[in-house]
Nucleic acid binder design. Structure first.
Lengths: 337, 337
DNA sequence: GGATGTGTTGTGATCGATAACAACAGTGCG
DNA sequence: CGCACTGTTGTTATCGATCACAACACATCC
């Protein structure tokens, strides 16, 4: 005999008060006598009462945060999603995930529609899009939105992301400090702002050292593209140092170099970016740039929440989470051939 | 001048009909004249109308599916989550994610409370729990629930998962077929049914071949535990074949073997499980068992949906998605020392 | 013609929670 | 005593959509 879940009225009846009073207890209004409050709370536990989200969001604001992501099965988005969810749980919010079917404008619009229809209180977008806000404008003027993106491009939307440029600079400088005359770069896709920022960081570190930047190889974030780039690089006799824009591509580079008989780190040093959990067990263990994406996700939620609770809060400048070099065995001093 | 989002009444006024008629158009009721229908639909597009989820789920059933997960930042859960979301989007449902703060009964209960409070129409649980249903019982009798778990244990909840046992058997047999006299196993945590099923598959393949199973080493799914197990295994002279319960642990084993100067696959063959995207670029590329977790996620949603739409549908027997061996360079024929 | 049925549309109540407002008791003060 | 004030509680309307039911037009049949 499964009864329907108890409502605020059932609680009120049991406690012998009005529904409004129960609501006040729920929302911790100050003007409720201690006696009444305890009557109500004990009635709630007795019935196993649970506030109904739908009713709440119908009347007032919802407590749903939408996460708009390109693909939550990838490492970056899923780590960020985890952080958002954890922070949301702490704040009493829930998280709805919507993945993009593609990055076409139509798909983005459809995904936004889904979120708006849910009446989300805020949105965290984890997208490879240029932050021109053009595409996200249907969202923009409806709910507080934050873009998880580690670029410093001016943007109509608040940005929260990792310090890609700084991390890439650290990685590059690390290699230069080890005595390498230059550093090759396997970059990510041009349409990902994070990839562009890493490339910028790499280039600026080389410039600061007075070294001319070699041509960039572009990959697609995955191991296969790293492997291809690695095969090209392996043909270059003068090659001694490579910085890959993420760990998966670094892994591909490692494999390609090994197959060509180039020893890492003896002949060539390789550095990645991300510090995925596997990186410490690559062969050799990968020197990389750790980015705390869970923390980034938390910060995203924080930013969205302040904009929800205080609609007119000044838009924060881009929030940047530092990224730090983790030195492992894949990078070592330059040795003369 | 940001007006509130248009409601069904606004549409009704523009179309010159009643709200109820608009509702009928929305829900595709048969008894609406074509003329009225087109009046309503054009009014909807004119206003940019979007149905309000909260109101809908307050009155009728919600279109929310809860995903209860131990940790959506890990490969398995995040891949499954992706599949669930994709299938949900196709079916017009949305997905809410709740991660467990820990696997303690209290944390599980709290997570269930959150989902119930949302009024989810169904739940997909991605948990390392024994499927005794004891812990999930507060959910059990409230909403249709499916456990994403590849075990064959009898369970009060429908199970959907990958064929761990079959996959493990394939991997083990593959190694035996290559001439290895026995196969060592680096298993997953004992409290994960999927890990137990893989161990069972390994053991049964050995038994079928009339080989006595060597003692099992237990890891914690991550590379570090695989590395530790690998260091132990590397001391054994007679070792020629290892089957690890997932790719991360296999990666750790590969590293430990390499550090001990044991050649893979020359001296030792290694096989993993999962086929994470990186596996093809390990050194050497890893022979492993591919499980299509996205597909598993889809099946989970399918199962939940049938139970939602048809409450009394017979509980399906455990749904099993096949897992297939992918042979790469890390496994090879036994060579006499 | 009147009874019956079918297709189409509108009215009122409802889901659960909350905001605005009203009501009431008790206190302090002139 | 009566007025203003504060603290506590209840009443009513509301959010957006849907269901049950009623109402009406029109066709069909005896």
């Amino acid at each position: 005999m499964r009864r329907r879940t108890p409502s605020i009225h059932d609680v009120a009846k049991v406690a012998g008060v009005s529904a409004q009073t129960v609501s006040r207890v729920l929302n911790e209004h100050p003007n409720v006598s201690d006696r009444t409050r305890s009557l109500v709370t004990s009635a709630m536990t007795e019935l196993g009462y649970r506030p109904n989200h739908a009713a709440r969001s119908l009347r007032g604001g919802s407590r749903l945060i939408g996460v708009l992501s390109s693909r939550t099965s990838f490492f970056g988005p899923s780590a960020a999603l985890y952080g958002v969810e954890a922070a949301a749980a702490d704040a009493g919010y829930e998280v709805v995930v919507v993945n993009l079917a593609s990055t076409s404008p139509g798909a983005v619009r459809a995904a936004c529609e889904r979120l708006l229809s849910l009446g989300v209180a805020g949105v965290v977008a984890v997208l490879p899009l240029e932050a021109d806000g053009e595409l996200l404008s249907p969202l923009l003027d409806a709910v507080p939105t934050v873009l998880l993106q580690g670029s410093r491009a001016p943007s109509p939307l608040p940005l929260v992301g990792v310090d890609n440029e700084g991390g890439a600079r650290q990685a590059t400088r690390h290699l230069l400090d080890l005595g390498h005359e230059t550093v090759w770069h396997v970059a990510g896709p041009r349409d990902w702002p994070d990839a562009v920022a890493r490339e910028d960081g790499w280039r600026s570190a080389l410039e600061a050292a007075g070294v001319e930047a070699p041509p960039t190889l572009h990959g697609t974030w995955d191991g296969a593209s790293g492997y291809e780039a690695g095969r090209i690089l392996a043909r270059m006799e003068e090659l001694t140092a490579v910085f890959a824009a993420n760990d998966q591509m670094a892994l591909g580079v490692l494999l390609a170099l090994a197959e060509s008989g180039r020893d890492v780190p003896g002949e060539v040093s390789v550095v990645g970016f991300d510090d995925i959990p596997e990186a410490a067990f690559f062969r050799p263990p990968l020197t990389t740039v750790r980015q705390d994406l869970t923390e980034v996700g938390r910060r995203c939620l924080e930013t969205v929440l302040t904009r929800i609770t205080d609609a007119d809060a000044a838009l924060p400048a881009a929030t940047v989470v530092t990224a730090d070099l983790v030195v492992r065995a894949s990078s070592g001093p330059r040795r003369d051939g």
